[in-house]
Design a protein around this nucleic acid. Structure first.
Lengths: 348, 348
DNA sequence: TGAGGTCTGTGAATCGATTCACTACGCTGC
DNA sequence: GCAGCGTAGTGAATCGATTCACAGACCTCA
């Protein structure tokens, strides 16, 4: 295909090079690229030939510098390796594609510093808006970002302020659903493997856990064994179980994991410890990821509308952008749903 | 934190605004940002105060335009939602971080057009190199890219040409491992749910399948039932099984799926059809993803060194960059490993 | 006293694409 | 014969950060 090889050191051809080669002005080349119908057929062809010969590729930096903005938004999720977030991201992409926006996707790995770094990177690159699953304390940063003209929508968490929109699932209800279910099965001593409370989802689910316990007349101090892990993945879940089993006192008969990835690791560790599920330990996860129903013991889980979550967040962001000052900020909240399977209920 | 609100329409402050406010020249502001020790303490403080007051954020486009290049490489994988690729991406990131490079990650979804679009996007943005799991026919594009000074490393596929490096796992061997295993268990009629042969991995694994059958003295026409699916995920696997069950003739007693996600869907469909595993159908997957060992019937799978795959690809890319013309292109190939579990071998 | 050196800071030139006021040309119609 | 108009194409100005040759201030030492 290409016969001319350009050495590493040579600089890539610019619009000026194309113009020279085609014997036209830079303005005309730009017109060929952006308003082809304003150029005569003969000239357009000459320019296109020159572009082809020089293997010209537009310089996005120069373009953006002049334009000032790009049709791009950024998204920062907690963990790109978690199927829950990839499904959410897919929802975001689907909505963005309709308006020809591009997505810059990053994972904060639940680290506020990484989150801040990516936010800055996005801003430096001139994105029009960001969707963030924020860590605690980043609200000020986000408000400042908004004040600098970059639209912000919170993803998978409810906005604490009125002038930033959010799309979330009722995590308090979700946590309560899990515990109500376990309590209804007769469990009175329940382990809860949770992430750090700096993550809003963890905090909310915990609140649901506590309120459900209270509703059931159970005292958290006796009924609940809380284990806090550092990362919400399979390794974290495994570590959580090992920590639980190292504790003195009565072992709980039920376990609620803050997400399915964690539950997967917990199940792995429980198996290693030779614990029967749900006989000796009933287990409930959260997210209902694709493999939850297919595990050795199918996992009871709290399901969330992932694709819709992402789609709606992107939709809010784009509408905020287009409607400007008339846009009404809103907190969209979806309801979670408990899917009962064998890991908690032998009859399921 | 921020008290001054900037309206949407106002343009963001530039280095010139900062300079004016601090009563210095733009050169000095730039020095504060890039060579702080060349500026006196008093001046530096004045500038930093101005930056804080104006909420100044560097404009990445202007920066890159001047610099000509950025410490960024792009990667395009087949499916970001596949745990295999997220693990590979993690390996890439880990290597890049050491040299303070950033990663732009995209998923081609096995679509050559999407792949081409992202390649162009990366190029326009001035990345220094790309790692690609290419689709068929994109070699010319990649060679041209390389000729334009952008380093290319093929990811998870062996390079067909001597002057482009690649990092891969021996997929032919992997396919053979799976079949040898099934044959050794006595299976003589095997279904193979594979993706389109335009995907090199699918083609290679198939080659391994055929060679292993030949070695076992089996005739593919009789011993092998090939099902081709469009997307290598759980839905594809489910569709594959439904297609298989709609076929006339003897039903195979074993199944090899081109990856674990596909196997997951296949298992789901097999369960729906009430098929006993491995009794009526032995199943082998590929990738040994995190949940493979935890399924209802633990999945026999071909394991690949994911993290190392990504790490090595990034390492080659960076070394190619730094060593320049003296760099020797190479094809790195890792060996896969069969992990036998209950889905194929009841005694496992 | 002045040559030479160090330390700070200056500001014009640069990167490449886009835009827009303007020119040139050809054509129509009176 | 020329005003008026539309079409095609021009090229200087612009976006914002970086760089670099240079200037000014101040000090040292012969």
């Amino acid at each position: 295909m290409s016969t001319t090889t350009r050495g590493r050191a040579e600089r890539r051809p610019s619009i000026t090079d194309v113009a020279k080669r085609a014997g036209v002005s830079v303005g005309t080349v730009s017109n060929v690229l952006n308003r082809p119908d304003q150029v005569s057929d003969a000239t357009r062809d000459r320019v296109l030939v020159a572009i082809e010969e020089l293997q010209f590729v537009r310089n996005a930096s120069a373009r953006q510098l002049r334009a000032g903005t790009i049709q791009t938004v950024g998204a920062i999720v907690l963990d790109i390796a978690n199927p829950f977030f990839t499904e959410v991201a897919r929802g975001v992409e689907d909505r963005l594609a309709a308006d020809e926006y591009t997505l810059m996707l990053s994972s904060s790995d639940e680290d506020p510093e990484r989150e801040a770094r990516y936010l800055r990177l996005f801003e430096e690159h001139g994105v029009q808006g960001v969707m963030v699953t924020p860590s605690a304390g980043s609200l000020d940063t986000l408000l400042a970002l908004r004040d600098r003209g970059i639209d912000v929508v919170l993803l998978d968490t409810t906005s604490p302020v009125d002038d930033i929109s959010s799309v979330a699932v009722d995590d308090v209800r979700g946590g309560a659903l899990a515990i109500e279910h376990l309590v209804s099965l007769g469990h009175t001593r329940i382990a809860f493997i949770n992430g750090p409370l700096t993550i809003k989802q963890c905090q909310d689910r915990r609140e649901g856990v506590l309120s459900a316990l209270a509703d059931a007349g159970l005292e958290p101090a006796e009924a609940l064994v809380e284990i806090t892990i550092g990362s919400l993945n399979a390794d974290g879940g495994e570590a959580g179980i090992n920590e639980l089993f190292a504790l003195p006192g009565d072992r709980p008969t039920a376990l609620f994991c803050v997400n399915d990835l964690t539950a997967l690791g917990a199940l792995r560790a429980l198996r290693a410890h030779g614990v029967a599920i749900p006989g000796e330990m009933a287990v409930v996860g959260y997210d209902d990821v694709v493999f939850a129903s297919m595990l050795t013991v199918p996992l009871t889980s709290v399901r969330q509308p992932t694709h819709q979550l992402g789609w709606t967040a992107a939709d809010l962001l784009l509408r905020q952008r287009s409607e400007g000052a008339s846009f009404l900020h809103q907190r969209v909240q979806f309801q979670p749903e408990l899917v009962v399977r064998g890991s908690s209920d032998p009859s399921a």
